[in-house]
Amino acid sequence: MNRRLRMWVLLLGLAGTAAVLAAAAFRLPAFGTDFHPYGDRAVREALARQTANTVAAVNFDQRAFDTLGEETILFAAVLGTVVLLRQARDERHVEPAPADVAAPVRRYALVLLPVTLVAGLYIVAHGQLTPGGGFQGGVVAATALHLLYIAVDYRALERIRPLGVFEVGDAAGEAAYLVIGVAGLLAGSSYLANTILPHGTFNTLSSGGTVPLLNAAIGMEVACAVVVLLARFLDQAVEIEGEGENAGGNAGEGERK
């Protein structure tokens, strides 16, 4: 296919998208009125399955399949980063030096770490009730771990961060989402259908059927994915030296490979 033909195919696609979008835009309900056909239906469905946070009901119940796609995008993006930022053959591994951080900052970070971790888990666990959910809580929990790099040093972070476990956790979170979806099939309805669990009592932790389970799966996947992603960036910025890259005085000191 030559360049010209490709441009024509592109133009055709763009024109088609524009036409469909324009047609859809004219059928939209007027802006700023009380008429919300989608909102009304979404809220009705959310209430029928005892999910107080309608956004969570849309994301993890009514359109759970879309969320599977989003989760897979993150999974694939992290996988790509891991491959791109691996230690290449012409790069050396350098032992990170301890950092000099003021004592009050260090103490504060060590107190804040568990608090932030708990806040992250709280946001994951309450996804079906209040704003938040697996993604937000997962990122908060993963950020909490990196307080160790920010306020202590990289070696402290490496000590509590067995990267292999987090890589497995990333995949396990993704797999858990798929398995919960298959459970819907096995229970006799459709993929990711919210029918396998009782819907529970409205506005309590045990409500929403599979919504909290899917939130937990996403939370695990996102937290592990962020840790793995940042690990690659940190390795590149702190530990890995390229050819002709000589940083400060301690280069070559801790050559391991």
């Binding site: 993604f135 937000q136 950020t143 990196h146 992603l229 940042l230 910025a237």
Partner: peptide, 27 residues
């Protein structure tokens, strides 16, 4: 009235993005 989106923005934007950018700049 979209606190879910606000939380996502906050979780990603407050510490994670600066860390990624600064580490890349440093390298």
């Amino acid at each position: 009235q979209a606190p879910d989106v606000a939380l996502s923005q906050l979780a990603v934007g407050s510490a994670l993005t600066p860390l990624l950018i600064l580490l890349s700049v440093r390298k």
